[in-house]
Design a binder for these strands. Structure first.
Length: 487
RNA sequence: GGCGCCGUACCCAAGUGGCUAAGGGAGAGGUCUGCAAAACCUCCAUUCGGCGGUUCGAAUCCGCCCGGCGCCUCCA
């Protein structure tokens, strides 16, 4: 069973064959750090997080690079306008690096809160100015770029394959250009590699051409090739980066090295709200920090991964609540498995009522089909039903079997998808010490006596009161009472 | 104007030529139960925006129409 990946370059699914056996070299476009991240960003990073976790599950050694863009992206028209970070700095009366640094930490905090594993390398654009200058020099030497007035532009006509990723033609771009024509450019579709800074510009570096700053695509080429090689396996990012960003990256990189840049291009689709793409400019953003005030990070991951990464996802409170409930169901089954593990034993002649291998197979089959997490998650739910049946129809449990079931969720739900915690919220059985636990136990015992006397009013009063302080009691058919913390 | 995507039940969402259209949530009924919660069982789209066509057979392919969206400017 081979791993198939949808490659934007060919618009079809292709078998994944790594350049170096057993290894995956992957670059994903990171954030421009001029504001807090919203849940649209989160879809991208959670999707690639699951993809990388799955590669590791398959046994690949992954080198994951994700840039931090702390310079270069402009606000308005292609060549004029003000750098976003500088704009923010001016507004807040801060040094641009203070802005970039502040939002970099904010981004890292958000990702940690969402359980997104850190990339192996998080290179900063401003930390790689020499590499970018070097790349531009190569492009000039090879005649793919030209200098005008201290700025350097890439000449798209010198690179006939320009447009191969996004399916555009230079002539069409010319016709439909909504960009104000920059008189320095030979052709409207040419893009800047280096811009000369005007005297008031806040971020600038010395270069052979001028005191200036790098163009807005060159950083990704410079940094990805520095850490992953001139040709590497996967480059990922948002669908909205296909053109012009990734198209330009290909042009710059392949022109400079004469080699294929990236083997598999992967693009995630957007989050929408009320039918419209979530974006800062549209103003319909929900920040990750605000989302997490209301919903649990794991439920949000479940929500994100229950749609395919290449599909658009419609966010709503109703959908998020659905995810919360779904997560409750999954964590419920794992909590019961945990609970049962301590009392389970070896049962002679035990024959497993569930084929766990079959569920592994189905999960992998789904993930191997271009990381189809919605189908993979359905497998987890299907098994949950069977496990619950097993747990409710038996009173004695076969330890190795219970362990195996538990391991299944541990590996796939916790390690690969990251939708279940390492440890489920404690239950009475799982705990042997602690004052809270002891107090709850005493209370439950008292309530059991009241129930024996059929003093329902008092018994219910205790249960309701505990619920108010976040402790849920569950009476079971055998007369015992379990409890858990309210999520 | 150019390029492209999507429209599956109340909500989110898989499925892209062939058994009964995944899964979750919500909803209805039932088992259990003093009640509740959880769990389990049953039900919940004869139908996939509409109309034609291709085919033995289509949600899936083709055409037209309706509706929504993305990119072409920074964007995950």
């Amino acid at each position: 069973m081979s791993l198939m990946i949808y490659n934007t370059l060919n618009r079809k699914k292709e078998e994944f064959i790594p350049l170096h056996p057993g290894r995956v070299y992957i670059y994903v476009c990171g954030p421009t750090v001029y504001g807090h991240s919203h849940i649209g960003h989160a879809k991208s990073y959670i999707s690639f997080d699951a993809i990388i976790r799955y590669f590791r599950y398959l046994g690949y050694r992954v080198k994951y690079v994700q840039n931090i863009t702390d310079v270069g992206h402009l606000t308005d028209d292609a060549d004029e306008g003000e750098d976003k970070i500088i704009k923010k700095a001016r507004e807040e009366k801060l040094d641009p690096m203070e802005v970039a640094q502040y939002f970099t930490w904010s981004y890292f905090d958000d990702m940690a809160a969402l359980g997104v594993l850190r990339p192996d390398i998080s290179p900063h654009a401003t930390g790689h100015i020499p590499e970018q200058i070097e790349l531009i020099e190569t492009l000039l030497e090879k005649g793919f770029a030209y200098e005008v007035n201290g700025s350097v532009y890439f000449d798209v006509h010198r690179f006939p394959e320009y447009g191969k990723l996004s399916g555009r033609r230079v002539e069409e771009l010319e016709a439909g250009a909504r960009i104000d024509v920059n008189p320095e450019k030979r052709h409207p579709a040419d893009f800047a590699l280096w811009k000369k800074a005007d005297p008031s510009h806040l971020m600038k570096w010395r270069s052979p051409w001028s005191l200036g700053y790098p163009g807005w695509h060159i950083e990704c080429s410079a940094m990805s090739m520095k850490y992953l090689g001139e040709t590497f396996d996967i480059h990922g990012g948002g669908l909205d980066n296909v053109f012009p960003h990734h198209e330009c990256e290909i042009a710059q990189s392949e022109a400079a090295t004469g080699k294929p840049f990236v083997r598999y291009w992967m693009h995630n689709n957007m989050v929408s709200m009320a039918g419209e793409k979530m974006s800062k400019s549209a103003g319909n953003v929900l920040l990750i920090k605000d989302l997490l005030k209301q919903y649990s990070p794991l439920a949000f991951r479940l929500f994100i991964l229950s749609s395919h990464y290449r599909s658009r996802l419609e966010f709503s409170d109703e959908a998020m609540k659905g995810a919360e409930q779904g997560l409750e169901r999954l964590s419920g089954v794992v909590a019961r498995l945990q609970e049962v593990q301590s009392q389970a034993e070896e049962i002679d002649g035990f024959s497993p009522p569930i084929s766990i291998e079959e569920y592994y197979r189905r999960f992998e089959e789904a993930m191997n089909d271009d990381f189809n997490t919605p189908r993979a998650i359905a497998v987890l739910f299907d098994l949950a039903k069977e496990v619950n049946q097993y747990l409710t129809t038996n009173t004695k449990y076969h330890k190795p079997f219970v362990d195996e079931l538990h391991l299944f969720y541990r590996k796939l739900a916790t390690d690969v998808l990251g939708i279940l915690p390492e440890k489920i919220a404690p239950t009475a059985e799982a705990l042997s010490s602690g004052m809270v636990e002891k107090l709850v136990k005493v209370t439950i015992d008292v309530r059991a006596l009241l129930r024996k006397e059929k003093n329902w009013n008092l018994a219910d009063y205790i249960r309701d009161s505990l619920q108010e302080i976040g402790i849920i009691l569950e009476d079971r058919p055998d007369g015992s009472t379990g409890w858990k913390f309210k999520k």
